[in-house]
Design a protein around this nucleic acid. Structure first.
Length: 477
RNA sequence: GGCGCCAUCGCCAAGUGGUAAGGCAGAGGUCUGCAAAACCUCCAUCUCCGGUUCAAAUCCGGAUGGCGCCUCCA
């Protein structure tokens, strides 16, 4: 398997430290607000990587943390006059609501910073003992000059950083680049007892402490959004490697950004879109498909048009899956005349996903399957003597591949009829009644009336499909 | 100022040395009362300029145009 390693800026052959086992740590969210679609992309990307590694037979230990203590949480809780802990808990709950809608698998461990204060203190103390950290008035800073390979992940060097430093000057620090490992707490702020007095962890130290606890000094993959490369991941490396003297992670994976209408998503631009808002009129699986349709390292541009493209593609896939399921009619065979074909698709899927998780190419495999299946189904029973068995096997395969991307697990009819939003004007019963009326009109060859009803439904986002078996309907996504 | 990334059909998007996957949209056709879905056919020489090579979208150099990081950020 080839994986692009941010550490060396090239694709490299991936070999796990322990055969058959993989340890992966992905930086999670700071819980002070609802998640936005940038989080959604990162979450989906690592969910797909997790699913795919398991699909390939690895025993995967996937760790994703919650940052539940930090400046932003404290500020927000002060603004709202609520307890910081309660605020964090609230947004962890909200996080799970979004996560479940997006169909994300739960990681093996989801550690929280505040549950690992002892480990954090221990790590800071070790750094201090090694002379890689120093305490000043209850704060503890990392002594950057002592870590010679600083900047290896982000491609920066200490001198450049020093000359272009925009960091505020703090006389108590030996170097402006030194960063806080432990912060003395001000009155009224959450704090924990430590050898340096009452305080709380700095931003980066929790990940070093928790990854070490769950995955050891050196593990296989560390990931997160591109924006975390500097300074977060760089500092994690300094902390962990400074303490252990061993590499933190063999592979570093970073996903690209999400833009909105070709602009960087940011609060100041006012184009921030939360997952919650988006899901009001976008089916969660469409969002997922949108993410999976691009390579994880490319930037993606979020726009109504691009989401519509994703929706149309997903509909096509579900359309084929629906036809297969219908043809199979519940038949669950263990072999069929199409098995060789299925195996060749499977191999192609694995080939492209083994190449740096090329999910966009994997989607193309699904479209190939869809194309061939439709063609095959159109030719009728002449195509294969064991049509139901073969159809069932192909459907199974689509679900198998779909599952590793987190797609195609819904019943096709329910996906196609659900549409994009939750507040559809017409309920199922009303639609069925109108279809009944239209079919009565069609019986009388009253095409004008039949078309009037169809147009009316069309305006409400309902599309009709007449067939020998009756009239089917779908909602547009 | 420092570091780095990207530029493929109207839109989305693969392809990393051998002569351009796929989806959406569009055109024509089959099917249909008409549609929808599906199928068939058609629809790009890869921003530009040099270079390396028998051969380049793919490698090198340059230009232009986007973008990111260097401060909290997925």
């Amino acid at each position: 398997m080839q994986i692009y390693n941010s550490l060396n800026r090239r694709k490299e052959e991936f070999t796990p430290i322990l055969p058959g086992k993989i340890g992966i740590y992905a930086c999670g969210v700071t819980v002070y607000d609802l998640c936005h679609i940038g989080h959604a992309r990162s979450l989906v990307v690592f969910d797909v990587i997790y699913r795919y590694l398991k699909y390939r037979g690895y025993e995967v230990t996937f760790v994703r943390n919650f940052t539940d203590i930090d400046d932003k949480i404290i500020n927000r809780s002060n603004e709202r006059g609520v307890n910081w802990k309660a605020l964090a808990e609230q947004y962890i709950d909200e996080f799970y609501v979004d996560m479940d809608k997006l169909g994300l698998l739960r990681p093996s461990f989801e550690p929280r910073a505040t549950d690992h204060i002892a480990e954090i203190i221990d790590l800071v103390r070790r750094l201090e003992e090694k002379g890689m950290a120093y305490a000043v008035d209850g704060d503890v800073y990392y002594r950057l000059q002592r870590f010679k390979s600083y900047g290896k992940l982000s491609g920066k060097n200490i001198d450049d950083l020093l000359s272009g430093a925009r960091v505020e000057i703090d006389d108590r620090k030996e170097s402006p680049l030194d960063f806080a490992l432990w912060k003395k707490s001000k009155a009224g702020e959450p704090s924990w007892e430590s050898p340096w007095g009452a305080g709380r962890p700095g931003w980066h130290i929790e990940c070093s402490a928790m990854s070490q606890k769950f995955l050891g000094d050196t593990f296989d993959i560390h990931g997160g959004g591109k924006d975390l490369i500097f300074p977060h991941h760089e500092n994690e490396i300094a902390q962990s490697e400074g303490a252990s003297g061993k590499p933190l992670a063999n592979f570093w994976i970073h996903n690209g950004f999400v833009n909105i209408d070709q602009e960087k998503m940011s609060k100041s631009l006012g184009n921030f879109l939360t997952i919650r808002e988006l899901l009001e009129d976008c089916h969660p699986e469409v969002l997922r498909f949108f993410v999976v349709s691009s390579h994880y390292r490319s930037p993606i541009d979020f726009s109504a048009e691009n989401v519509a493209v994703a929706a149309a593609g997903l509909e096509r896939l579900y359309q084929s899956l629906g036809r297969l399921l219908q043809t199979a009619a519940g038949c669950e065979a263990s072999t069929s005349s199409m098995d060789d074909k299925i195996e060749s698709w499977r191999q192609e899927f694995i080939r492209v996903m083994d190449d740096d998780f090329n999910s966009a190419a994997a989607c193309a495999v699904l479209f190939d399957v869809s194309k061939e299946v439709n063609r095959w189904l159109d030719t009728g029973t002449a195509a294969a003597p064991d049509m139901p068995e073969a159809a069932g096997r192909i459907a199974q395969f689509m679900r198998e591949v779909g599952a590793t991307l987190g797609l195609l697990q819904e019943e096709p009819q329910s996906f196609l009829q659900r549409g994009g939003s939750d507040d559809d004007e017409l309920d199922t019963a009303a639609i069925e009644i109108l279809i009944g009326e239209r079919n009565a009109a069609r019986q009388e060859r009253n095409w004008a009336e039949a078309d009037r009803i169809r147009d009316l439904l069309d305006e409400k986002g309902i599309t009709l499909k007449d067939s020998a078996d009756g009239t089917q309907w779908q909602r547009k996504h």
